[in-house]
Design a protein around this nucleic acid. Structure first.
Lengths: 222, 222
DNA sequence: CCAAAAGTGTTTGTGCTACACCCATGT
DNA sequence: ACATGGGTGTAGCACAAACACTTTTGG
């Protein structure tokens, strides 16, 4: 299953893995070992097998790169230009995944020449049409922040309201008034205060919250 | 290009064609001639060729069934279950198209055993996973009605505000207050009154409007 | 005592909802 | 004249935006 078929288009899946990393929204990219994009950065992915569903192929690629399963993963869009892959006719079904920061330690496996996080606003030139995929994923995430609870996939179990607000602000590239933001989060009824506090670092400790519901649901938030 | 390939999954496109037909939101279905779903109703579609993009394949299928081009067509979702097609491994990229009522006269070609419009709320049992596709298309359309001007694809060039309102009400399955609805449409600034009027049928004639912009754009409407 | 971030209410204005009557036409 | 759908304004209410100071901790 390594050579493309030259009679029919074959199907690949590519995964746009997003996380808050060093205070910016970042995407996990790998450096490719082989032509036609040797030493280029790209989103992880690979050909779909005949005996697995497209969703399963995405899950397999996600787990293969990150070691993670049980992660938020959603289909994004299918990229089907004839010339999108110079090595043959490959149609790619793009997915995006959201993982909490530090949910993963990056080990370069022998499959890649490298792996790393990149700010979605300043990526290197990407292979194939992967830049389109990343941009599409960011737009989708931005849209879903305001009417679903997806953001919980980017946060640790316990977090402060300021961390939550910062996550929204970074991804949406806006600023919110602290009191208004908290009022909306309270009205949306998606988090509960725990009795834990942050260990303070030269300032007042903050209350830690957790999400009421860690399953995806649509709720008006902003 | 008629037999599936048994070494790799092949790619098909299916088109969910929607229109307002006899006052309900309807989908264009064809009756299949050949096994494995002989005499079943299904959305039109077919295998993608090696030398055409997936988008082009969808356009070709749309034009082949309806004779129309220059029509609103958008990718919906890719259906990739292993067992979705009993005759082989076929991954289908579903699209939906919006056409104005009476934009088309249905001629059964020899390719199909039949063709017809069906209320999306009372369809016959559909082949493959096509019911999922129709439901998905309806949901997408419902969502886009409130924040884009897509509705113009379902209406003739000239229409009354009541027709516009009815279209919204039928698709969203709600009722709107006439005055409030008109205020919102006015605020959205997407239509202009023409100097044409309906030929009245035992009642006061209505002003005919047209869309300011017949290109897709996102605008808050409801 | 100072620096740094946490936490908390009120006012003002805008936008949404609910609601009822007169108008123009064909029969 | 009557039946049918077309067309229009307002008042009340709820939600959203703007805005500043006090609290708690570590150093």
């Amino acid at each position: 299953l390594t050579k493309p078929c030259y009679k029919y288009a074959v199907i690949a899946t590519d995964i746009i893995i997003l996380a808050m990393h060093q205070q910016v929204l970042s995407v996990l990219l790998i450096k490719m070992k082989k032509p036609p994009y040797q030493d280029c950065w790209a989103a992880p992915g690979g050909l779909a097998r005949l005996d697995e569903s497209v969703d399963d192929s995405a899950l397999r690629n996600l787990e293969g790169t990150t070691g993670l399963n049980n992660i938020f993963l959603e289909q994004l869009y299918t990229f089907g230009r004839v010339d999108r892959d110079p090595s043959g006719r490959v149609v790619s079904v793009a997915y995006y995944a959201l993982i909490p920061d530090s949910g993963i330690s990056l080990k370069t496996t022998s499959n890649y020449a490298g792996i790393g996080w990149f700010d979605v606003q300043s990526m290197p030139k990407l292979a194939y049409d992967h830049k389109n995929m990343v941009d599409y994923a960011v737009k989708r995430l931005q849209a879903k922040l305001s009417y679903t609870n997806v953001v919980h996939n980017l946060l640790p179990k316990h977090f402060t309201l300021t961390e939550l607000q910062t996550t929204y602000e970074v991804i949406l590239r806006t600023q919110f008034d602290k009191r208004n933001f908290r009022r909306k989060i309270k009205a949306a009824d998606i988090v509960v205060k725990t009795d834990l506090m942050t260990r303070s670092r030269a300032n007042r400790p903050a209350a830690l919250y957790r999400f009421k519901n860690r399953t995806y649901q649509t709720v008006q938030i902003l």
